[in-house]
Amino acid sequence: MDEAALIADAQRGGQRGLDAFNTLVLAHQSQVYNVAYRILGTEAAAADATQEAFISAFKSIDNFRGGSFKSYILRIVTNTCFDVLRYNKRRPTTSLDGLAGNDVAEDDATSGEEFLPSQDENPADAAERGDIRRHIELALLRLPPDQRATFVLSDVQGLSYDEIAEVMQTNLGTVKSRLSRARARLRDYLLSQQELLPEEYRL
């Protein structure tokens, strides 16, 4: 996929431009949706933010001045998520998604298949790993939004410090600081749940 050519086509407009942009959507939608989900915590909100981000990116594609489209679309979706979080903070509501079992806190559906023990792992270890994962997902949603987004982009999505700085439009020092604080908070949360930790992690 020649990303630059697709972007040039998308900037030209018309049906061909839309097709070119949709090729980019198909290539990045999974990552964009997952980032939105990890920041917002619900599938419905993440889907809305993802759709809004792609529409916004398409409308402003003329302003794209080169560089990585991944960073461009991740920046838009991160900002969209921050807007949603700010809006929810001003007007707190009770999500019905939680009642349907879609919230991370209530949702065990995604921890089923993926956490079936592998052949060289005993069921107890697998269950322990699943518990840790769920608690980290829960603790993640309690982080301040900027630390949460930095942790998601770094440790979940595997972006480099430079890429995160570009996505979040900040400097490397801020990225390092936010990341270390996020990791420390999650670590302290796990340490407060000693029964979750395997033997070798306890003092």
């Binding site: 030209r12 407009g13 018309g14 049906q15 061909r16 431009g17 839309l18 942009f21 949709n22 959507v25 198909l26 939608q29 999974s30 990552q31 964009v32 949706y33 997952n34 989900y37 990890r38 599938e43 889907a47 993802t50 759709q51 792609f54 529409i55 398409f58 995604t110 993926e114 790993r129 840790i132 994962r133 980290i136 997902e137 993640l140 942790f151 440790d155 979940v156 595997g158 990791r183 999650l186 670590r187 796990l190 930790l197 992690y201």
Partner: peptide, 28 residues
């Protein structure tokens, strides 16, 4: 452990496609 567990979080399946509809095409 935290960083490793986070890196192993499985990607969520997409609830739907986010491809833009043809109605969104702008004049060439």
């Amino acid at each position: 452990l935290v960083a490793h567990t986070a890196s192993q979080l499985p990607p969520l399946p997409l609830p739907r496609s986010f491809v833009l509809p043809a109605a969104m095409a702008v004049p060439e």
